[in-house]
């Protein structure tokens, strides 16, 4: 009994690493550009399908392909912000929500037309099956590596935002776009860079997800909701909080899944809503 519960918690924590990867980009776009990208989950799924096609053609490991694609992901994020989303800056929340909403529908249905509704999965090689015996429980090497990657990515992003010159500029525009504009830091220059970084986190999340779980063109919204809940649970503006939020979501899902598949999602949502009632600012909100 104790072993079962311990096992559920450990596996849930590890899945939480994957959710944190989904949520990092969303946390960044909320923190810097102050909008929710409704197409966030769909863009991750889009990257997964790109990896599917390229690994099929090249025959390489999806992780190698993802590594090579990192600059492309940055470029796509940059272009998206520079030429589409930037047009809605300063016009309130409605236009940007509706543009990303339209984008979400276009990506979902475009993928449906291109790849069909079947579920897919990428092969990560022998590492997928490897496991470590830690006391009474088995821990998959791959989930553990994804969790460590999430920790490393958060540490890297934290260092990027707080230790580099470009990070300081991003934070300046995030804190006060008008004042930053006065000293020559225009949102038109800074936001695309931030969105490029978001693109990189999306590609990393996509490569980890496509090896770990099945995916199909319709799963974007559920990934968006999980990412969103992780960000709000953790507290806005706190990347480490987002990791904790992802872990809470993962553990809740794991306990729910003991009953059935719909309880898996229901448990995730209910934990989020209860947390919202008692701590709307999130667990680790930065004031």
């Amino acid at each position: 009994m104790v072993e079962t519960i311990l096992n559920l918690i450990v596996q849930g924590v590890l899945i939480g690493g994957l959710y944190a990867l989904f949520a990092l980009g969303l946390s960044l776009s909320l923190g810097v550009m102050r909008f929710v990208n409704i197409a966030h989950g769909d863009m991750i799924v889009l990257f997964s399908f790109v990896l599917l096609s390229l690994t099929g053609v090249l025959g390489w490991s999806p992780f190698l392909v993802a590594l090579i694609l990192l600059p492309v992901a940055f470029g796509l994020g940059w272009l998206l912000q520079r030429f589409l989303l930037q047009r809605t800056v300063g016009k309130g929340i409605l236009p940007i929500l509706l543009v990303t909403f339209g984008l979400s529908i276009i990506i979902q249905n475009g993928l449906l037309e291109a790849y069909g509704p079947n579920t897919r999965k990428l092969s990560g090689g022998a590492i997928e099956l490897a496991a470590l015996r830690l006391g009474p429980i088995d821990v998959g090497v791959y989930p553990l590596l994804v969790f460590l990657l999430a920790v490393a990515l958060i540490a890297g992003l934290d260092a990027f935002l707080y230790r580099t010159a470009i990070g300081a500029r991003i934070r300046a525009v995030a804190d006060d776009p008008a004042a930053a504009d006065l000293i020559g830091l225009t949102s038109a220059r800074i936001y695309p860079v931030a969105m490029g970084v978001v693109g990189i986190t999306m590609l990393v999340a996509a490569s980890c997800m496509s090896v770990w779980t099945n995916f199909d063109p319709s799963i974007g919204p559920s990934r968006l909701l999980a990412a969103f809940e992780a960000v709000v649970l953790g507290g806005l503006g706190s990347l480490w909080g987002t990791l904790i939020g992802g872990v809470i979501i993962g553990v809740a899902q794991n306990f729910g899944s003991q009953i059935d598949a719909s309880w898996q999602i229901l448990a995730q949502h209910l934990v989020f809503l209860v947390a919202l009632v008692f701590r709307p600012q999130g667990l680790f909100a930065r004031s």
Partner: peptide, 22 residues
């Protein structure tokens, strides 16, 4: 869900609808 505002509220309504459906 009214504890959330603006963009957050939009996604909050989605979560609420998902809960009602489940």
């Amino acid at each position: 869900i009214f504890r959330l505002r603006t963009a957050y509220l939009a996604v909050g309504t989605w979560v609420a609808a998902d809960v009602l459906m489940l």
